[in-house]
Amino acid sequence: MTGEQFVFLAVSGLTIVAGILVVTLRNLFHAALAMMLSFLGVAGIYIMLGAGFLAAAQLLIYIGAISILIIFAIMLTRRMMQAQDTPFNSQAGAGLVTAVLSFILLVFVITRLWRNEIFDSPPEVPTAIMNQIVVQLGSDFVSPGAYVIPFIVASMLLLAALIGAVYVAWPQVEDEA
């Protein structure tokens, strides 16, 4: 077994075990932590595929933002923090069927792709160009020749959402009337 295979097994094992823990742990807070671990494993797989930027984005967005958001939400709702219910409910059967069907679909797609020559000879992308792509992405976001206007509009969107969040979260002042 080569070192690469060993690392792959370790990383994918981590992802799968953590993924199973997410749906079986009784404490919701622990489940959220297990989900972060699973995301970390996915980031590791991205690194092994040579997609460093994607791995960094995975770390920043999924672990840095989404998981933290979920943990915040759990911690803010005290009842959920203490809940020790069984994670299986009446929809478990339907969920299992959906999961199995999705799995079959994915296997089908992957085995079809397997015969494609892309898998036999993956295109060698020099590291210099890969780095350039990330730089290009960054400069395109703020370049008037590319995506500056969506970038600005997105920032206005966040500003409006921020104002709204503050408004909704602020203690209600008693009406003067």
Binding site: P150, V153, G164
Partner: peptide, 14 residues
Amino acid sequence: LILVFLALEVLSIP
């Protein structure tokens, strides 16, 4: 279409 989507959100969230 990217801008259409962002505009849709800028209109909706407020």
